[in-house]
Design a protein around this nucleic acid. Structure first.
Length: 767
DNA sequence: TCATGACTAACTGTT
DNA sequence: TTAGTCATGA
């Protein structure tokens, strides 16, 4: 028998062996879905399908890289195109940019940039937005884009003031994006859909090229993605989608559950495979999940079962405060680790909102538990990183207004809001990019103070100077930016804690760039580098093989599994989230979020809530989540507090309701966690905490070996160095790696010189 | 034009 | 709690 199939069950085999025609794989949690997808890719390759005809699309970067590594094991060296929808869209758009009015070097705006751009458009256009914030308007535009409603086709609805505003603002916003040759995340899909729709020849070419398409997490696709998929599989109808309606948790992002619920209507000849056997969780965990999700109406019924062990009871624990909750969990985990039962990496803690991670972090630090937090977009959202990347954006795409606005006065060079506004007005009036407007400063606006004009011209020539670097190594580009703009000096001379951490982050960025250069040597990859920065999310930074406890949102947890799972803050308003409690379909989505969390657990699961929780700096009484009442009592072990003080009626009521449902095992006074660990005693263990980033510079030490040679690693951006002939200088930029590592050094007398570090007599100053 | 400090409003999730 | 806005004085 084919070794690809031996380890699979019947349903899995059926899915893997399916080759032509549409297929829907309904895969319950833990049913080996990723296995099926990867094995199917390998199987297709084995049956002679060229790798170039395969396209596998996922929803997140994490899922894509997971899949890439697994396909790599099954079918090494096969160049299967495997990426997220957005990345796929970005690549296609590079190729067909002119078809949709972009230049190939277009910029991708993240949520923040897009919102700022929108705000500018609203201000500049003097739109009356009444009480609607740019955020609200942006959401409405995003929804329209996800539904593929083009700016000129948007129809305001009577009785919806917001839609009238959107009808005005949306076209202006989109015009400005195109003028900047920029797209937002939604455009990555909308433009592609439009491209395929408006260009039958392009569509046919791509349909021909991607004859076999596999889509993971199909329940999370939105209308735009749906249309793209349909367009790419019209002639070659080998579209295989996998998903689980019960795990659809991106409705707010436009995911349309109908896509999966109606797949069989769209493709009447679709082969449908159900993967219902769960290989992940214990019977009791699965029953809790199954009964909870049974309360949803909009779903496809499926029966989950497992041959795994019965397992221990699912725990529900009540705490007084969030601090109790956090420290109890931390103590439990470290006890399990020190007794040798578990490793730190066996544990994961899930929460509904990122803000809840802070208390947990504190508790973990106190106990000295190593942990890693998965949080979206942290690094690339930092001001200093965005500032530096802003210059890169500008080098890559000089029409990028957002980049101009970000960099024109960063670091401060005396170009104030007033000047910028005049520039913007001029640019909008002339319908030209901001940088061009800045370029014209000397010639057009005679009324301007020559002081301002001078500064603006200096900025323009700075950008021009940097632009000559477009094809250099990333590290060199970044290095030049840092030195030429004075950004590095400014931070280095700063004394605040903040400046220090900014500097550390910059170092981290340089290290990252250096790694990138090693992977893509020779330079000229600025665009790819930026694309990567724009489309990453920090989930990629998750290291499965380090021994740390994982903390993340329930959304980020999708697709992962852990031996022991904690879900915290099962409270009304948190899970379900307060913005979702009124709408039944949103409530169902919240239930699915809980379902996803529960089904990540392999052996143990603890859910908890606190009677009091700090929110917005205020302490509030909570109401336990109604979802808890929907779970089977007989599978659970409950730990209620004995007394929570006077008149905690909501919690009392909840307990009565919970107990009324004939609960066999209750455990009223045992198991209450000890108040908390004394905060003062700072154990030496806490040294092990690993939340901070160690920069390459920190690790490099003095970098001088016994022979007196200075390791190339000893040199860092901006460092003062000594040369025997030229004397004191400063490192302006670094590039290359290993023995090819070069430094550009600016000397006081001799000007700029370039050195190959291993052969150079350069030394860090002062050594 | 910029730095400072007071004040205020917001806190879902991800590409 | 905190990021962001606003007013003030230098």
């Amino acid at each position: 028998m084919d070794p690809l199939l031996t380890s699979l069950n019947r349903a899995q085999c059926a899915a893997v062996q399916h080759t032509t025609g549409p297929m829907l794989v309904l895969a319950g949690p833990g049913s080996g879905k990723t296995r099926v997808v990867t094995h199917r890719i390998a199987h297709l390759l084995r049956t002679g399908v060229p790798a170039a005809q395969l396209l596998a699309l996922t929803f997140t970067n994490k899922a894509a890289s997971e899949m890439r590594s697994r396909v790599g094991q099954l079918a090494p060296g096969e160049p299967v195109w495997l990426s997220t929808f957005h990345r796929f869209g970005a690549k296609l758009l590079r190729h067909y940019a002119d078809h949709v009015g972009l230049s190939p070097n277009y910029t991708i705006y993240d949520t923040v940039d897009a919102k700022q751009a929108l705000t500018r458009v609203i201000e500049a256009g003097n739109f009356q937005t009444m009480h609607y914030t740019p955020g609200r308007i942006g959401q409405a535009i995003s929804r329209a884009k996800n539904k593929l409603i083009a700016p000129d086709r948007y129809q305001p609805r009577p009785g919806s003031p917001l839609s009238h505003i959107v009808a005005e603002v949306y076209p202006a916003y989109q015009r400005r994006l195109l003028a900047s040759s920029a797209v937002d995340f939604d455009d990555l899909l909308m433009h592609v859909a439009q491209l395929l729709y408006a260009n039958p020849d392009v569509r046919a070419t791509l349909d021909e090229r991607f004859r076999y398409i596999l889509v993971d997490e199909y329940q999370d696709t939105n209308h735009a993605q749906y249309v793209i998929l349909r367009a790419l599989s019209a002639d070659h109808r080998n579209l295989a989608v996998t998903g689980d309606p019960d795990q659809s948790i991106y409705g707010w992002r436009g995911a349309d559950l109908n896509n999966i619920l109606q797949f069989e209507t769209d493709y009447p000849d679709a082969h449908v495979v159900r993967l219902e056997r769960n290989y992940r969780s214990t019977k009791r965990i699965l029953r809790v999940a199954d009964q909870l999700i049974g309360n949803n109406l909009r779903r496809k019924r499926k029966s989950l079962f497992t041959d795994n062990e019965e397992g221990g009871a699912v725990r529900l624990v009540e705490y007084v405060t969030q601090d109790d909750e956090a420290s109890s969990i931390a103590t439990q985990i470290s006890a399990a680790i020190s007794s040798g039962q578990r490793r730190a990496s066996d544990f994961a803690i899930f929460y509904r909102v990122n803000a809840l991670s802070r208390g947990l972090e504190r508790a973990f630090r106190q106990v000295g538990l190593p942990y890693q937090i998965i949080r979206g977009l942290e690094f690339y959202q930092r001001k200093e990183i965005k500032d530096v990347l802003g210059y890169c954006q500008l080098i890559n795409n000089p029409r990028d207004d957002q980049a101009v606005l970000r960099t024109i006065n960063t670091p401060a060079r005396g170009i104030g809001a007033k000047t910028v506004n005049r520039l913007v007005q001029h640019a909008y009036a002339e319908r030209i990019p901001l940088l061009d407007a800045a370029r014209q400063v000397g010639t057009i606006q005679t009324t301007w103070a020559s002081r301002c004009a001078k500064k603006v011209s200096a900025y323009v020539s700075l950008v021009d100077r940097l632009s000559t670097l477009a094809d250099a190594d990333m590290e060199e580009i970044l290095g030049k930016i840092l030195s030429e703009t004075g950004y590095h000096d400014q931070l280095r001379d700063g004394e605040t804690e903040e400046d220090l951490s900014r500097l550390a982050n910059i170092e981290e960025l340089l290290t990252d760039a250096r790694q990138f250069d090693e992977e893509y040597p020779g330079g000229g990859y600025l665009e790819s580098y930026l694309e990567n920065a724009w489309l990453v999310n920090e989930t990629d930074g998750w290291e499965a093989d380090t021994d740390k406890v994982t903390l993340m949102t329930l959304h980020a947890a999708k697709g992962l599994e852990f031996p022991v799972v904690y879900i915290v803050a099962l409270e009304h308003g948190v899970l379900p989230h307060e913005r979702s409690t009124s709408d039944p379909s949103q409530l169902e989505e919240e239930r699915r979020v809980a379902f996803v969390g529960i089904t990540r657990a392999e052996q143990e699961l603890q859910m908890s809530y606190a009677v009091e929780r700090d929110f917005r700096g205020q302490r509030r009484r909570t109401v336990p989540s109604s979802f808890l009442l929907e779970m089977p009592r007989e599978e659970m072990q409950v730990t209620f507090l004995e007394a929570v003080g006077p008149a905690v009626t909501c919690v009392d009521e909840f307990r009565e309701d919970f107990i009324a449902d004939d609960i066999p095992s209750i455990d009223l006074d045992s198991g209450l966690p000890e108040a908390s660990i004394s905060g003062e005693s700072n154990s030496p263990l806490s040294q092990g905490v690993t939340a901070s980033i160690t920069t390459a510079a920190q690790m490099a030490g003095d970098g001088i070996d016994r022979l007196g040679h200075v390791s190339p690693d000893a040199f860092a951006q901006g460092m003062a160095v000594v040369h025997p002939e030229h004397g004191l200088g400063k490192i302006v930029a670094l590039s290359g790696s290993g023995k090819n590592r070069r430094a550009t050094v600016g000397f006081a007398t001799a000007g700029e010189k370039r050195f190959v570090l291993v052969h150079s007599p350069l030394r860090p100053a002062g050594q």
